[in-house]
Design a protein around this nucleic acid. Structure first.
Lengths: 337, 337
DNA sequence: TTGTAGGCGTTATCAT
DNA sequence: ATGATAACGCCTACAA
């Protein structure tokens, strides 16, 4: 062992100590803290008093050992400081807690290899369910999870795996609508600002937009300046707007990209939005609604998704294998009506 | 029981099953997965093979039962979709995972009553430590946690409690410096934009700024339009800038407030920043660095704080009862140099 | 090196 | 209603 011996922590108070102090049996203590068990008001009071005095709290780890349900739900996520991911984690923790679950957050720190490690932790802690918000989980491990009775929920992924449940946003429909909206605003030179991340959502939005444009007889430009974020959006603006034949309608596959694009377009190219250029985003993060941006975008129904996930875990039969949520347009001022 | 009986989940594979398949004893399996235990390469191989085949993973819940250390660290947090909180959670999960801990996030959803419930969960899951990022934990419960051998770390709180460890930002020094910087920029009518949240950090920054101004012979205006956020900042701008004797140097106790203030000042009052008005923020969230804002602010060393916390949990003796971190100025363009 | 036995804190079962 | 007992999955002496 590398480290000097870690002495066991000051042990916390157990049910038998409470029983001893209260002058009853362990079972009486257990029953006092078990819903629907039968204890006389008398002993119950004695136990409660002793418990309060000693600072006793039921050990959920031991309880889980017997019940085969830990109450733990794992969230595997990366880049959780970004607005959308952060909002999702917030909503998920809230919904899951409401259902009596407790959330363990596994941060993959963007390293694909860590997804596997995270999934293993999930198994180690006997999580009841694992929600993969970001990253590509190795198929075999997902299967192991499911074989071990764990629920696996994949968000916005299109892997062809049997077993996990999928929750997806209707990216294609939204991207197609974006194309329609921009064309209706009179835009004739379309572009899509994407990223090099290559996640299923990003790719789906990008592809669907290009296809929709194609169907309308327009060859949409695609620009990917880097990872999905503000800086890449700004850089894409520099690349797309410098040329002679610059686009007049841009769909950014993420709000963060859109905000970077907007800022660069306005500040560095002195373009007026939406007169010279229409811009749409995706996600409806808080900043999209700020006075300086007023970005027209698509809202992902985060709270509804979180509630749906929490609900899935309640009914034993699992619910649908796939659930789709629409992304609805939020009209603001970066697109001519 | 309210709910119909929840059948126990398909039980996952245990060490004894692995032992059975591998043709060895339970202990051999245990030893294979215990650092520094002695197993012959032969049996080890047999065990590993069986484990792989069955998809066995050590049950950390059971292991924690014996070791009196669950490996779990709880994070009690509210408003975790806001940039600063989100970044903190991201950094903390990362640092703690690096130390082999696993993070449980308890979202209080802004309700003070939930802080107590969260602290109870902390006890229930035998967390090794609890980090209170937001909210005011009831003193008695904190003491219970500590009596049960749990580490309690309070972030940016000034409660006078014996037992927990405190990690604080030097809010006063920063606010005092903000006052100095604004005065040096030639500002003579100072104001501080704060919020009605009344958290220790907010109050400390607000008070220290007012005091520093006072010491310089200036009566700083204080404005609190609502909760700590973009909208309140914008509203404060409307209230402060509408009057005749409007301030020309403003310290916003949070970047989000500052961004709202900036937008309203520029868009609704057509003020030029920093010519007409200097603005400073606090936190250095990502948006502060965006092209459209370029906000001069104070950076909280989030990564360092997270590393420090993770480090504290490693050495058994606990480390210092208080640790202070400086907030350093990040010079951008909303204050004249 | 290996196996056996006991115990960690709970709860379910079975008598009482 | 109450108490004794077994079991959950694991680890750690202890003995072989």
């Amino acid at each position: 062992m590398a480290k000097a011996k870690l002495r066991p922590k000051k042990s916390s108070v157990s049910a038998s100590k409470v029983a001893e102090v209260a002058g009853v049996s362990r079972s009486a203590v257990s029953r006092t803290f078990t819903d629907g068990a039968s204890v006389s008001p008398e002993t119950r009071a004695k136990v409660l008093a002793a418990a309060e005095k000693l600072g006793y709290h039921v050990n959920h780890l031991a309880r889980g050992l017997i019940h085969h349900r830990s109450g733990i739900v794992c969230l595997i996520v990366a880049e959780m400081q970004t607005p959308f991911q952060a909002s999702f984690v917030e909503a998920a923790t809230r919904s899951l807690q409401d259902k009596g679950k407790v959330v363990m957050v596994l941060n993959t720190a963007g390293k694909p290899a860590n997804v596997e490690a995270a999934l293993r932790q999930t198994l180690n802690y006997r999580a009841e369910a694992t929600v993969v918000v970001s990253g590509a989980p190795p198929r075999s491990l997902v299967e192991t999870c499911i074989e071990n009775g764990q629920r696996v929920i994949l968000i916005n992924r299109n892997d062809a795996i049997e077993g996990p449940q999928f929750v997806m946003i209707e990216n294609e429909a939204a991207a197609t609508e974006a194309c329609f909206i921009l064309r209706r605003a009179g835009c004739t030179r379309l572009a899509v600002v994407s990223s090099t991340a290559g996640t299923p959502s990003i790719v789906a939005r990008e592809t669907a937009f290009v296809d929709a444009a194609q169907a309308a007889g327009i060859e949409a430009l695609v620009n990917r300046a880097g990872p999905t974020g503000y800086a890449s959006g700004a850089e894409s603006a520099r690349q797309l707007l410098a040329g002679a034949n610059r686009p007049d309608g841009v769909f950014c596959v993420t709000d963060l990209l859109a905000l970077g694009f907007l800022d660069a377009a306005r500040i560095e190219f002195r373009l007026r939005i939406p007169e010279d250029l229409c811009v749409m985003g995706f996600d409806d993060i808080a900043a999209a609604g700020w006075l300086g941006y007023d970005l027209t975008t698509f809202r992902q129904p985060i709270a509804e998704i979180a509630d749906h996930i929490a609900g899935m875990l309640e009914d034993e039969d699992g619910g649908p294998a796939q659930m789709h949520f629409p992304a609805r347009v939020v009209w603001r001022r970066t697109v001519r009506p």
